[in-house]
Amino acid sequence: MKKISLITGLFLFFGLTGVQAQDEIILMENVHVADSTFLIEEGIASYYGIRFHLRETANGEIYNMEKLTAAHKHLPFGTMLRVVNLRNHREVWVRVNDRLPKTSKRVIDLSKGAARELEMIQDGIVPVRLEVPDQETIVSLIDYYQENKPAGMRLRLYPEPIEFFRPEIEMFDLMLTLPGELIFSRLK
């Protein structure tokens, strides 16, 4: 009888800790490595270099192909973006200072310096993710676009995350939740 009670107790203990471990694995599957809270757009990036070097950009600056700048179809000038190369996960922060043609199939055109940081010079074009630095930028973009948000652009506000900790189940706590006859049989 003691063996059966001990085996049942161990089975319940390891079975419940196995369920807890399985729950943690399921929770970990829902955790994304790249936080999508500030993601605003995904698509193809290209870069431009020597042909436009030292020419005037759409906002009036002189283009320097070594600076970390970019051209976008409609984001406000001065917008800071994190550009993530989805092939190798390298990233770079750029400032929008130029315009892409409205008919372009690219989401962004990067300076050669930014393209070098993303290790995309050889490829020429790569799939990218565009992110803004914070929720305040998202609020300002929502205000900027009003009802005319471009198709394909994602502008969402998220509430602040709530932190919580899962309590650890110890053997004593587990024994308190077991039926009375199992506890008493273990004490015999």
Rank of each mutant, 00 (worst) to 15 (best):
D134Q: 09
F172E: 15
E131W: 00
E136L: 06
R156D: 15
R154C: 05
P159S: 04
R156Q: 09
Y158Q: 09
T137E: 03
P167M: 08
A151F: 01
Q135V: 10
E136A: 09
F164G: 12
M171V: 03
D134M: 10
Q146D: 02
F172T: 01
P133M: 07
I169V: 09
P150S: 12
D134K: 12
D173K: 03
F172H: 05
L141M: 11
E160D: 14
F165G: 02
V132T: 10
G152V: 04
L141K: 03
Q135F: 15
E131C: 13
E160A: 11
R166T: 11
E170S: 09
Y144N: 04
Q146I: 01
A151V: 09
S140A: 12
E163A: 07
V139P: 04
F172Q: 02
P159F: 15
P133H: 10
V132A: 05
Y144D: 06
P167N: 14
F165V: 08
G152I: 01
M171T: 05
D173V: 03
L157T: 08
P161D: 05
P150N: 00
Y145L: 00
D134E: 11
E147C: 05
E170K: 07
N148Y: 13
E136F: 01
D143H: 00
E168K: 00
I138M: 08
Y158I: 11
I138A: 03
E170G: 13
M171F: 14
A151C: 08
R166N: 04
F165A: 12
I162K: 15
L157W: 07
I169P: 05
F164T: 12
I138H: 06
S140K: 11
P161G: 14
E163D: 12
V132D: 05
P161H: 13
Y145N: 11
P167T: 07
Q135Y: 15
P133V: 07
K149Q: 15
D134H: 09
Y158M: 10
F164Q: 09
T137K: 09
S140E: 13
I169M: 15
T137Y: 01
S140I: 04
E136S: 07
Y158W: 13
Y144K: 06
Y145P: 12
E147T: 13
V132Q: 05
D134A: 11
L155R: 09
T137V: 13
N148S: 13
E168P: 02
D143S: 06
V139C: 02
F172C: 02
F172P: 02
E131S: 09
E147K: 14
L141G: 13
Y158N: 11
E170F: 06
E147H: 12
M153D: 10
P159A: 12
D134L: 01
E136I: 08
E147L: 10
E136D: 12
R154H: 06
V132F: 15
G152L: 10
I162N: 10
N148M: 07
